[in-house]
């Protein structure tokens, strides 16, 4: 699945999050699936409501972490696709 860089993304309802020891667990109460992501993944998850497109997320991560924009864009795109596949976010 390819997400257009400017498509608006929304968190799925009924997802509980738990941050423990620098890891984030995203628990889908509807499906009982648990997704474990690293600290950067947790950061992206936490800012998604404020930066709801791949482009905006990548720009924010680029400015916070100083990683090359092209690399960030590819990684954020892949991460968002994984979150959609896991049923954690949807297109608006």
């Amino acid at each position: 699945m390819t997400i257009l860089a400017d498509q608006t993304l929304l968190k799925q309802k009924n997802i509980e999050t738990a941050e423990l020891d620098g890891e984030w667990l995203l628990l889908n109460i509807n499906t009982h699936a648990i997704t474990k992501v690293n600290e950067l993944g947790g950061y992206i998850w936490s800012i998604l409501p404020e930066y709801p497109t791949v482009t905006e997320l990548a720009e924010k991560v680029h400015s916070e972490y100083g990683v090359e924009m092209e690399v960030v864009l590819n990684d954020v795109q892949a991460f968002v696709e994984m979150l959609i596949e896991a049923g954690l976010i949807i297109h608006a």
């Binding site: 020891d21 890891e23 984030w24 109460i29």
Partner: peptide
């Protein structure tokens, strides 16, 4: 790790899901 402990603990709780 605490994340793994949480995953292991969740299915040991006496709880029957009925309300989100």
């Amino acid at each position: 790790r605490k994340g793994d402990a949480l995953i292991s603990l969740l299915d040991k709780i006496f709880y029957w899901e009925h309300n989100k």
